[in-house]
Simulated assay, not measured.
Amino acid sequence: MVFEDRFRNHILPDKIHMLNVSFLVPQMRREFGGCGGNIAYNLKLLGDTGYLMATVGRDAGLYLQWMSDNGIPTDYVRVIEAEHTAQGFVTTDLDDNQIWAFHPGAMQLSHLNEVTQARDELARAERSVKVGIVAPDGREGMVRHAAQFAAAGIPFIFDLGQAMPLFDGEALKTFITQATYLALNDYEWQVVQQRTGWSEAQILNHVQALIVTRGAEGSVIHTRGGEIAIPAARPKAVVDPTGCGDAYRAGLLYGLLHGLDWPTTGRIASLLGAIKIESRGTQNHRFDRDEFVTRYRENFGTPLSLATG
């Protein structure tokens, strides 16, 4: 929602303790999002299939139809009839200040889904789970799913993201010892170091790669063999950064699925983030595979061949 004025004109600093304000918002836009949905959407654009494992509420019909229309499987999206789907409400003023409210709803029951059940059902359909990701979700769901991935021997990325306030240092250490890869933005990386007391070297004793994104400055992939700097791809326009991190993570999953080296994987992820930032919302950008290959060559000076699986 867009408030066509400035919050500061209507909020009295000396009356914050008794705040009671209302903003007229003539502009309103509804977008489909969520980390899992965004990652699956971007992975599908590259030609791969990601199986979402999530809980939604009784109001999820439009989103489920959107997923179906875009070829995203919903086999493991469980509808909780007693809840609403997780959703955020944001009002932005003319200075780009924002007031957010977030309702987790059915997301708090994400632990009702089990990695091993999904894996076994897919195996019966002759589809193997090659890699997973534990992205921001309900706290109990993240804890259980990380443990289930580890117990099943399925390599996975741990992505702390917006769930950062939910976990202390000991919980983060547990996630890191279970995960195969750790993906963070630069701020989250500082927080993880502070809460765990672990250095880069100590973390790399547990994970195969530590991926740190730095926005317009690109990203860095830390491995036991050394540090790999990934340049930022050039966007055609900077419109909306929301969801760029999820697009980047879809690129990581694509590279891992197809056994690509880290420099190529990181550049695919970087380009996905740049393409996403050119559009409002998190699932409104589109491209075909030829366009992606062309932009990869233009940005990084090397050819790319996209596989499917």
Results as ranks from 00 to 15, higher is better:
residue 143 V to T: 08
residue 76 Y to S: 07
residue 115 V to K: 06
residue 80 I to T: 05
residue 55 T to G: 01
residue 81 E to R: 12
residue 102 F to L: 11
residue 99 I to E: 04
residue 109 L to G: 03
residue 53 M to S: 13
residue 98 Q to E: 06
residue 51 Y to E: 05
residue 64 L to H: 04
residue 105 G to A: 10
residue 100 W to S: 13
residue 130 K to H: 14
residue 118 A to G: 08
residue 100 W to E: 05
residue 91 T to C: 13
residue 135 A to S: 15
residue 85 T to G: 03
residue 71 G to N: 07
residue 77 V to L: 03
residue 73 P to D: 08
residue 89 F to C: 05
residue 81 E to C: 01
residue 87 Q to G: 06
residue 61 G to W: 02
residue 141 G to D: 01
residue 88 G to V: 06
residue 108 Q to L: 14
residue 134 V to L: 05
residue 120 D to C: 11
residue 118 A to H: 05
residue 98 Q to I: 06
residue 52 L to K: 07
residue 56 V to T: 08
residue 137 D to E: 09
residue 95 D to C: 05
residue 73 P to H: 09
residue 51 Y to W: 14
residue 61 G to Y: 07
residue 83 E to C: 11
residue 102 F to V: 12
residue 114 E to M: 05
residue 80 I to G: 00
residue 75 D to A: 14
residue 127 R to I: 15
residue 118 A to W: 04
residue 135 A to W: 00
residue 86 A to G: 15
residue 68 S to P: 03
residue 121 E to P: 12
residue 96 D to W: 00
residue 136 P to S: 07
residue 46 L to W: 05
residue 123 A to Q: 15
residue 118 A to R: 10
residue 114 E to H: 15
residue 77 V to S: 04
residue 77 V to M: 04
residue 136 P to K: 03
residue 130 K to P: 03
residue 51 Y to P: 09
residue 97 N to R: 06
residue 107 M to N: 08
residue 89 F to G: 02
residue 99 I to Q: 06
residue 127 R to A: 11
residue 122 L to M: 13
residue 128 S to C: 11
residue 82 A to H: 10
residue 97 N to E: 11
residue 74 T to R: 10
residue 78 R to G: 00
residue 88 G to F: 01
residue 65 Q to L: 08
residue 61 G to I: 03
residue 113 N to T: 04
residue 62 L to G: 13
residue 138 G to W: 00
residue 50 G to K: 02
residue 90 V to H: 04
residue 81 E to S: 14
residue 129 V to D: 08
residue 84 H to V: 12
residue 124 R to Q: 15
residue 128 S to N: 14
residue 106 A to P: 03
residue 133 I to C: 14
residue 46 L to K: 09
residue 80 I to Y: 06
residue 122 L to N: 11
residue 78 R to Y: 10
